[in-house]
Design a protein around this nucleic acid. Structure first.
Ligand SMILES: [Mn+2]
Ligand SMILES: [Mn+2]
Ligand SMILES: [Mn+2]
Ligand SMILES: [Mn+2]
Lengths: 238, 238
DNA sequence: TTATTACTTTAGACGAGTCTAAAAGTGGAT
DNA sequence: ATCCACTTTTAGACTCGTCTAAAGTAATAA
């Protein structure tokens, strides 16, 4: 059996690896988990012994297939919980992350199945992140890029939004920007300020930090299979 | 902040104290939590320092008001979770206990509120045990006694059923005996075997171990306020 | 009253996960 | 080619919750 702590390390390594690719540095993990680098080095040793990661000294870590499976399991729990809380317990999308973090290590497989069944096997969580399937098959990486990398004139659809910052999420819910929203980029000002036009014709100016947290795809690349779970995306963003 | 482990000790002390009164012996706690007596002695020292229990050496422990409040909080979480799982996720009453045990330390106060609201503030859990109120006021002790202490001719109503043994609970669900069921005692045989007649006229013979786990009140003392939450009692006992 | 027995506490050890401080390695700039 | 700044690892310590083994206490039986 793996401890909660080990599960959190594996989840974190997975997420950094998904963004920046392996190897994942000690300090990146330390920052993400708010631990000292020395602590991380020690735990990486344990995870390596258990066959969950491979490691090159002074370079960084990489998940093994087994480690990846554990990470996907935890991520499935996390995202199913987020979806359930938003859909069935009236949580807003800015509140679900912390609650899911606290519960993800403690639910049974039976609970996981029942929650998934209650929601009819949702494909994405309230932030637009894909929910790993029950068989824990690897997730394909998506082609979404931050809004901050796009240019004036682009028309894009919001694919997902980083769920790490409550205030950002509240701001975006207020602005009516959630997964599925279509945005036209009207202006890009100095310091990364992006002005967008929403479906309803309104204009919003978004600071760079927000524009970096919004992942978008081209409008014509839209609605392929990501939208299967858009009922969940729509829910509880008041 | 209290650890999960401390919460479990306090919950356990509360439950033993409710059954047998203080002081609660080291060995009783050790048995209930499946730890060694030495371990329990050590933790009792910690709980005493924190002001959660009082203690007389070689005699046993007793909860302070503060300790009792913590225990009631954990118990509220546990029983609300059991009720929610049975009512909203289709769990049977034999499955809820373990899941609630795993989750009770990890839900937020917000989650507690939302679950309570979703169920319309249930008064009892699926086993008939009272759910402490949100203000954590002490529970009055009920007057229910084990079916095994009753005599031929008595007509009684099931008040609650011990939730510790899955197989017992499955057996009872099968037999149609749940909180609220009226039973007539038809026979008491050697070795404590009790034969009862159920509402529908059927007869059941219950081994002593089962009869000890069923807490009943006199039929005429019935339906005072315990029945406020009988919708919950009825749910999910397939 | 004393001896037996059961229970409780003390003493000491250990694994998990964490930290701080110091040593070692890495990679770019001079 | 050497040095410097930064990162990583090592070394050692600490807390928490647990255990085993030994010693102490209480209650009862002889
Ligand atoms: Mn799972
Ligand atoms: Mn999310
Ligand atoms: Mn609570
Ligand atoms: Mn119960």
């Amino acid at each position: 059996m793996l401890s909660d702590v080990m599960e959190d390390y594996l989840k974190t390594i997975y997420q950094i690896q998904a963004r920046s690719g392996p190897p994942v540095s000690t300090s990146a993990i330390a920052t993400a988990l708010d631990k000292t680098p020395a602590t991380v080095t020690s735990m990486l040793g344990t995870l390596e012994e258990r066959g969950l990661i491979t490691r090159e000294k002074y370079k960084g870590a990489e998940l093994t297939r087994e480690g990846e499976t554990v990470a996907l399991e935890v991520l499935r729990h996390h995202r199913l919980l987020e979806a359930y809380l938003a859909e069935r317990l009236d949580y807003s999308w800015s509140e679900v992350h912390e609650e899911a973090d606290a519960l993800e290590h403690h639910i049974s497989e039976e609970f996981e199945r029942r929650v998934a069944a209650a929601l009819d096997d949702p494909a994405v969580d309230p932030h637009g992140d894909p929910i790993p399937s029950a068989d824990l098959a690897p997730l394909e990486d998506d082609d979404a890029t931050p809004l901050s990398t796009r240019e004036v004139g682009d028309t894009v659809v919001v694919s997902r939004v980083s769920d790490r910052d409550r205030e950002e999420l509240e701001y975006l819910a207020e602005a009516g920007i959630t997964p599925g929203t279509t945005l036209g980029i009207v202006d890009v000002a100095p310091f990364g300020m992006v002005t967008v036009e929403t479906d309803d014709g309104g204009e919003q100016s978004l600071p760079e930090s927000i524009a970096e947290a919004i992942y978008v795809v081209d409008a014509d690349t839209d609605g392929t299979d990501r939208d299967a779970g858009s009922d969940v995306q729509e829910a509880g963003n008041a």
